[in-house]
């Protein structure tokens, strides 16, 4: 029972991490909370769903398609809703409002055109379980967890080793300087949104397989924001750790205490972190940049 709960928690935590990584990436470069991230995750899930049910693709292709689809949506989102604000150096309040507008718009667009029906993915794993030290663990949970870890590790390598990755890290510390050094900011930001969108696509497909696909499924991203704060806003290892911690703690609370109080508990955890350690586990300090 304990191990089973732990694995379930880790798999949910893995999905939270995927969402939090995308959010953190955008936050660290553009310095604002991209509240449209949840809507991109939702659209990624719908893209995956369409590929799986209409074209009967396998899980690998569904993931690939959803990564590409959500990535493109995220880039378009930036081009249409943020880029002009970014160019005239609008306060981050404006960017946040614009992001929230995107989120509300996309969510209700889906609601109005596709409808509020709940869709289920075809069963890729057929509820298979594997036994591990006497407790049965779902293959989906383990798979999602391992895949999330691999994806985040890949991102870590990309940001650390490639030229584009170096440009991203330079952009994080100083955007203007980075542009003076000859980095094409528009392209850099497009790459960042493509990456964030790609992670959102993976998260959307996993969420859709684990639960269901519906217009407001993106609201789960609230948990990813909380995870990002716990780990430290704008830090990638922080997003991973925060997501895993939140997922595990939530699952234990809902198994051993009360499933109703789960969301209340995550909120309490957030407030506790803000009081005791506002910079998060791996944060660079939560101060507003001047």
């Amino acid at each position: 029972m304990f191990l089973q709960t732990l694995i379930t928690g880790l798999s949910i935590g893995g999905i939270y991490s995927l969402m939090a990584v995308g959010y953190s990436l955008v936050f660290s470069v553009l310095n604002f909370s991209n509240f449209a991230h949840g809507a991109v995750i939702m659209l990624g899930a719908y893209v995956g769903l369409a590929l799986a049910t209409k074209l009967n693709l396998g899980l690998g292709l569904v993931l690939a398609g959803s990564v590409a689809g959500a990535g493109i949506i995220a880039v378009l989102n930036e081009r249409l809703a943020y880029s002009s604000l970014r160019r005239r150096k609008a306060p981050s309040l404006y960017l946040m409002i614009s992001a929230m507008g995107c989120s509300v718009f996309l969510e209700n667009m889906v609601y109005a055109t596709i409808g509020s029906r709940f869709y289920a993915f075809p069963e890729f794993f057929g509820r298979q379980v594997i036994s591990l030290w006497g407790s049965s663990v779902s293959l989906l949970d383990t798979g999602a967890f391992v895949f999330s870890l691999l994806a985040i590790w890949g991102l870590h390598l990309f940001v650390g080793r490639t030229r584009t990755g170096i440009a991203i890290r330079a952009g994080v510390s100083d955007m203007t300087m980075c542009s003076l050094m000859g980095v094409d900011l528009d392209r850099l930001i497009a790459v960042v949104f493509l990456l964030a969108g790609g992670f959102a696509g993976v998260a959307g497909v996993f969420l859709g397989i684990k639960y269901l696909v519906y217009p407001t499924m993106g609201w789960v991203t609230n948990k990813a924001y909380i995870a990002a704060v716990i780990g430290g806003l704008g830090s990638l290892p922080g997003a991973l750790a925060g997501g895993l911690i939140l997922g595990v703690v939530e699952t234990f609370v809902s198994t051993y205490v009360s499933s109703v109080l789960r969301d209340v508990f995550s909120f309490t955890l957030l407030v506790a972190f803000l009081v005791m350690r506002p910079e998060g586990l791996f944060g660079r300090g939560g101060e507003e940049k001047v």
């Binding site: 909380i226 806003l233 995550s266 309490t268 939560g286």
Partner: peptide
């Protein structure tokens, strides 16, 4: 809600996230 999240040292994003979480928790 404001006391832990609006402190001068914290970015305003913290408050935005906390109040989103609070809305959900209150509904539950």
């Amino acid at each position: 809600i404001g006391a832990p999240t609006l402190r001068a040292k914290l970015r305003s994003d913290y408050f935005a996230i906390a109040v989103l979480g609070f809305g959900e928790a209150l509904r539950v």
